[in-house]
Simulated assay, not measured.
Amino acid sequence: MRVDGKIDYVELPGVDLPATKGFYARAFGWTFTDYGPSYTAFDNGGLDGGFNADPEDRAAAPLVILFATDLEAMEARVKAAGGSVTRPIYSFPGGRRFHFRDPSGNELAVFSEA
Rank of each mutant, 00 (worst) to 15 (best):
M1H: 12
V3S: 14
G5I: 04
Y9W: 15
V10I: 14
L12E: 01
G14K: 03
G14Q: 02
G14L: 02
D16E: 02
A19P: 06
T20S: 07
G22N: 07
A25N: 02
A25K: 00
R26S: 07
F28V: 08
W30F: 15
T31Q: 02
F32S: 10
T33N: 11
D34L: 06
G36I: 07
Y39I: 08
Y39S: 03
A41M: 15
A41K: 13
D43Y: 12
D43P: 08
N44V: 15
G46Y: 07
G46L: 12
G46A: 14
L47Q: 04
D48H: 12
G50K: 05
N52T: 11
N52S: 12
N52G: 07
A53H: 07
D57C: 12
R58Y: 13
A59T: 11
A59R: 08
A60K: 11
A60F: 09
P62F: 14
L63N: 04
F67T: 12
D70V: 01
D70S: 06
A73K: 03
M74P: 02
E75I: 01
A81P: 00
G83C: 01
S84E: 08
T86M: 05
P88D: 06
I89S: 05
I89G: 06
Y90A: 14
S91K: 09
G94T: 15
R96Y: 03
R96F: 03
F98Q: 02
H99Y: 12
H99K: 11
F100S: 00
F100C: 03
R101P: 06
P103L: 09
P103K: 06
G105D: 05
E107G: 07
E107K: 03
L108G: 11
F111A: 14
S112L: 10
A114N: 12
